[in-house]
Simulated assay, not measured.
Amino acid sequence: MTTDRSHASLLSLAEEAKIWRRTIHQNPELLFDLPKTAALVSEKLKQFGCDEIIGGLAKTGVVAVINGNLGPGRTIALRCDMDALPMSEQTNLPYASKVENMMHACGHDGHTAMLLAAAKQLAESRDFAGKVVVVFQPAEEGGAGARVMIEEGLLDRFGIEEVYGMHNCPGLDVGSFAIRSGPIMAGGDRFLVTIKGKGGHAAYPHLSHDPVLAAGQTIVALQAIASRFTNPFDPVVVSITYLEGGNGGALNVIPSATRVGGTIRTMNAQTRRMVEERFREVVTATTKSFGCEAEIDWRPGYPVTVNDPAMTVEAAKAASIVAGSEKVDTNWPATMGSEDFSYMLEKRPGAMIWIGNGNSADLHNQAYDFNDDAIVHGVSYWLALVDQRLNGSAGE
């Protein structure tokens, strides 16, 4: 399959995928509301002749089954994400977003195009045993689309035994891959704390219970969670990203309440539970010491993304076939970013791999753009992975 396809043919396929990618880029959509993107994906999959195409999972998710011609075997899933971000694009590219305050700032347009191209080749060749399930998922950016697809029966309905994902990585050379066994991306939780005190005149602070002071001390105290309550070799990030208070610009008034928000990232499930417990203790005790009380709105986020050790080896082998072992880093540092592919990896063995996006702007940056030169490498990886997992003894 992948070994017989000429480099020239793959380049031609990648050029076709580039057109799809730029069309998706110009028409970004958010979360679960992806009618245009889902329609494009469904139309292409039908044109390719996939055996079964199902839409509507998690509202706009699309799933297709491709049966191999070499008899029975395992069923593996290749997954990509399709949604954009609520950001204003500042790239000045000829194919820049046409939609105000929406852009593909994380490369999901590229992920979608690469998986579509792989699906086209797999449906054409079919020289593998078993089944390939291609999963086009909505709402990775904060909507937990992967979890919703699982709840709606994705894994069981299609008999999926293994799951694989791929994400572009700015700063990693085009044509290179990176992966690690075990935790590769952090679990991410969010919080919003409302600190209630007693407002009053700023000239008489002793007659008030100042929630601004309580908020300031709470912000400082929370940093001790990472620096004093967790093992230095167990990564924890506590970031305060939101602070609100005051009375419409009245600078001589102590407000009656403030709000503090942010995110906490961890790489270990046990640590994650401990950090939440410590967070609640610190917030409650600190605000109480200033005569205030706290209402904690804890918002659980995505779990830690954990690569299965055996499947990590398989993914690295496939990447090495495509790029050469010298361009595959198998001990890539874990990132404190989070990814809802983690829900799939909780249910099935598999692996997430990074693919180089070259010297581009960072993810979630208004100047970011997916590097089209990476497409041929991503498509080749998907094909090599299928060849490896579903051919010969691997497919039995």
Rank of each mutant, 00 (worst) to 15 (best):
K347Q: 15
G188V: 14
R126A: 05
P28H: 12
L390Y: 04
V65M: 02
A351C: 11
K317M: 04
A394H: 12
N231T: 09
A105S: 15
I24N: 05
A319T: 02
L70Y: 05
S176G: 04
H104P: 05
G248R: 00
A203I: 02
F279R: 12
K44S: 13
D33T: 15
A17N: 03
M267F: 03
D83Y: 08
V376R: 04
T23M: 04
E314N: 11
V236L: 10
K120D: 09
I76P: 00
V237L: 12
I24S: 05
G107T: 14
V132W: 01
P86E: 08
A294H: 01
V148A: 13
Y242R: 14
G337R: 08
H201E: 09
Y204I: 14
E52L: 13
S256W: 03
T335G: 11
V313N: 05
A119L: 09
I150S: 02
V260K: 09
Y368A: 10
M344F: 13
E396G: 12
Q366N: 13
S320A: 15
H25V: 14
D340A: 11
A202G: 15
N101I: 01
F279N: 07
I195L: 07
L385A: 07
L207C: 06
P235V: 13
L385R: 01
L34S: 04
L10N: 08
K327W: 00
V386I: 05
